[in-house]
Amino acid sequence: MKPIDRFISQMVESARLAQTQDASAATALIQKALAESGLLPHGVQAPQAPFANPGQAPFVDLNPAPRWSARMGRRHAPGARQAKADPRAPGRFIDGSFSCGAGTRHYKLYIPAQPAKQPRALVVMLHGCTQNPDDFATGTAMNALAEEHGCLVLYPAQDKGANHNGCWNWFETAHQAREQGEPAILAGMTRQVMAEHEADPARVFVAGLSAGGAMAAILGAEYPDLYAAVGVHSGLPAGSARDMMSGLKAMREPGKAKRLRKGVAAIVIHGDADHLVNAGNGEAVLGQFLKAQAAPLHKHSEAHDHAGRRCTRSTWRDEGGRTVLEHWQLHGAGHAWSGGNPAGSHTDASGPSASAEMLRFFLAQGA
């Protein structure tokens, strides 16, 4: 059995044990699975406490965050963790929170130092499992790009009470529909920030990594009236799972994606050596948004070396020449943010820069 298959089977079994209320056995199996797969650093223990959600084992799709992030987390409230400031991003990085009937989440918001000459574009960035807003901002370096282009960047923070490993619950049906669960919270948070900071409603975008990418796909599927474009890095299509066990299966074996009511522009980035989320999921995300497009599109593909990595980039353009869909297949890349800053977790310094390519694609939609 391949290591990833063994890891997934162990996680599935741990979920079964949790459902039978045998939390100690489930925790022991999770520790064993993490240690054998290399996902648990030497000397670090997996959680010993019962699971935050009854019947739900921790859902892991990323390596643990760096130690500086964990240390900061002990001194700051959720969503308010801090990393070393980026001198290229001299704007304000402020704390906030949003509450609605579906729950409360904290967030960080980057506001550029340069004065706004017009309503700003807003990019919502959804972190992956074990990450937090400061870590994700550091690893993606999106704030520096936002400063250059005058954009707001919103980093929602998953609450550990909602998911022990800080994953967005993309795999649960309760968090896959419009105005329900986490999609309702994230869309409401987006609207609140838009109103408070006078964002341009025609230039609101959402992107994410892994679990965050899967949730970004859900937001694009459920809120095409709110988000003009979606960026999915190493994620999964909307509706690809109904619970944790089917989510683990979808990570390994991409299944049938739900049909969307309306298409939005989307850029998909995925490494073909991703051992945690099968690269076929990137193609499934692309297909999901492609099928929802109302008008015929023209495809163009090219392979080239890009900042130290061989890539295949495919684009789909409308009759007016605007790129509506874009797919980056990163040859030899694993499960990490492409072109990221090593000071953040789950990054690959080799290019292309996912942040630069996503922002370029996003801003072209509102041009």
Results as ranks from 00 to 15, higher is better:
residue 3 P to H: 09
residue 15 A to Q: 15
residue 18 A to H: 02
residue 19 Q to Y: 01
residue 21 Q to M: 07
residue 23 A to E: 15
residue 26 A to N: 03
residue 27 T to G: 15
residue 29 L to I: 08
residue 30 I to R: 13
residue 31 Q to H: 15
residue 37 S to V: 01
residue 38 G to R: 08
residue 39 L to D: 07
residue 44 V to M: 15
residue 46 A to H: 10
residue 55 G to W: 05
residue 59 F to G: 08
residue 60 V to W: 13
residue 62 L to K: 01
residue 74 R to C: 00
residue 75 R to D: 07
residue 76 H to D: 02
residue 78 P to H: 08
residue 80 A to L: 05
residue 83 A to M: 13
residue 84 K to E: 15
residue 86 D to E: 03
residue 86 D to K: 06
residue 89 A to V: 11
residue 98 F to E: 00
residue 100 C to S: 11
residue 104 T to K: 11
residue 107 Y to D: 05
residue 110 Y to E: 04
residue 123 V to Y: 10
residue 123 V to F: 10
residue 125 M to P: 00
residue 127 H to L: 08
residue 128 G to Y: 10
residue 133 P to T: 10
residue 134 D to I: 03
residue 140 T to P: 11
residue 142 M to G: 13
residue 144 A to H: 10
residue 145 L to D: 02
residue 146 A to C: 14
residue 148 E to I: 01
residue 150 G to H: 06
residue 154 L to I: 12
residue 157 A to D: 11
residue 169 N to I: 06
residue 174 A to C: 03
residue 176 Q to W: 10
residue 177 A to H: 15
residue 177 A to C: 07
residue 180 Q to F: 00
residue 182 E to V: 06
residue 183 P to R: 01
residue 190 T to V: 07
residue 193 V to S: 10
residue 197 H to N: 13
residue 200 D to N: 15
residue 200 D to H: 04
residue 208 G to W: 09
residue 214 A to M: 06
residue 217 A to M: 11
residue 218 I to Y: 09
residue 222 E to W: 01
residue 232 V to K: 05
residue 232 V to S: 06
residue 235 G to D: 12
residue 235 G to H: 11
residue 244 M to K: 07
residue 246 S to A: 01
residue 248 L to R: 02
residue 248 L to G: 08
residue 249 K to T: 15
residue 251 M to D: 02
residue 255 G to H: 00
residue 257 A to L: 00
residue 258 K to L: 03
residue 276 L to A: 03
residue 288 Q to F: 05
residue 296 P to L: 04
residue 310 R to S: 08
residue 314 S to H: 07
residue 316 W to V: 09
residue 316 W to H: 12
residue 316 W to E: 03
residue 317 R to A: 15
residue 320 G to V: 01
residue 325 L to A: 06
residue 326 E to W: 03
residue 326 E to M: 12
residue 331 H to Y: 06
residue 334 G to Y: 00
residue 336 A to Y: 07
residue 341 N to M: 02
residue 351 G to F: 08
residue 355 S to F: 07
residue 358 M to H: 06
residue 358 M to R: 03
residue 358 M to I: 14
residue 359 L to K: 04
residue 360 R to H: 13
residue 367 A to M: 06
